[in-house]
Nucleic acid binder design. Structure first.
Lengths: 210, 210
DNA sequence: TTGTATATGTAACCTTTGTTACTGATAAAT
DNA sequence: ATTTATCAGTAACAAAGGTTACATATACAA
């Protein structure tokens, strides 16, 4: 755990804080697809991502989803932080996008470290900052872009996060994360294939030059 | 200033913090329509809202707007806080919705008080929490609702913030804040009038029973 | 190999939203 | 009172996205 922690956070956290984290943090490894947080859950701890990626999803009244953003190495879940303070329930669902390693911090330490460590304060604030900004980018995309543009952004981002040019999802799954319908996504994907930007296969999509 | 401050924040801030705020804060009164922050601005201070309301807007590439949410008494601008830390530019525009009183805090105090005062930490975290949640609600509305529902929510919220059952805006202005077009909004407003939910007039709308 | 479940392709159609164009109404200015 | 600018109403049309229905393709299991 110590090596993982130092790799991801060694530069920004002072040694005393690293030691504190080693004392109280618990190391977890989860496989792709594992559900870390469900909507309505009370939050037990704050995750520090060491490797991998977690997708954060929102749900509408009908139970349909919408992908908000990914958390990656060095990130933490801002929603979690705010929930901890107020003892409120989670507004979002969090699912491991790939195999992921993380360190869970008990929530009582958050408040303590915020008073004690300048580097922790900076980390928490910067984390809020980037999450707010990612939420703004997601909102821009939904409010201002058409579905074809959103689909291209989605494919690019997914390829980046998964670190390969193959998207291993069905059209149905993609439609769900974009809060659209399968037929619409199939239609737009076919258009992208016709202009040689992607290659369609059963259960996967190969990205050529998006 | 002291009375205004105590009314809005006296319950959550300890007296020493109140005194600190009185020392370094500057009191400001702005009229409805005054632009407090423009996109791209560097942030000079952090606003504590004493009375009134501020609307926070996002802009697309074409320069068209979208209303994100309102800040009201007891609120502060989370975007401002994060911008202060990283010295980045504002991602949003902030305009007084009504005549508004606020106290500006120099940004250097933020970091100091976060270490020093537990109540300040709580305030900052809770502020992030509510802003993230309001952004989520806005996002829900845009991603999941049709324009007619969004329009109804908009009118209700605007009436609440302005504290009257008259919306003093043209259809054009409403269309801009919802990132739609005038004709669409006129059409939907007319439908609302036909089912006796509102009354349309030149330059204002009377809300009957939304 | 054959059957079965699932994924994808596609046409036809509908709803919502946006656009263009024009008309009439209203308020403010002269 | 008349002019002018702005605002609102509405029709006709276009485009995007969603829905239904069905055909075909593919993977996998029996």
């Amino acid at each position: 755990m110590i090596q993982e922690l130092k790799n991801s956070y060694g530069r920004q956290f002072e040694n005393t804080l690293i030691n504190d984290i080693l004392q109280v943090g618990t190391f977890r490894e989860v496989s792709a697809g594992y559900k870390l947080i469900e909507i309505g859950d009370y939050i037990k701890g704050m995750p520090l991502l060491v490797s991998g990626a977690i997708k954060v999803l929102r749900e509408d009244k009908e139970g349909d989803e919408l992908l908000l953003y990914y958390l990656e190495q060095g990130d933490t879940c801002s929603m979690t932080m705010t929930c901890c303070i107020g003892q409120t329930r989670s507004e979002i669902r969090a699912i491991a996008e790939v195999d992921t390693k993380l360190i869970m911090i008990p929530i009582r330490k958050m408040e303590e470290w915020t008073a004690k460590y300048k580097s922790w304060r900076n980390f928490v604030f910067e984390s809020y900052h980037s999450r707010l900004n990612e939420l703004l980018i997601t909102l821009d995309s939904i409010a201002f872009d058409r579905m074809d543009e959103r689909l291209v952004s989605y494919l690019k981002e997914k390829a980046r996060v998964n670190n390969e040019y193959i998207i291993r999802n069905t059209h149905q799954e993609i439609a769900q994360e974009l809060h659209s319908s399968r037929v619409v996504i199939s239609r737009l994907l076919k258009k992208l294939e016709q202009i040689d930007k992607i290659e369609l296969h059963r259960n996967y999509i190969k990205i050529l030059n998006l």
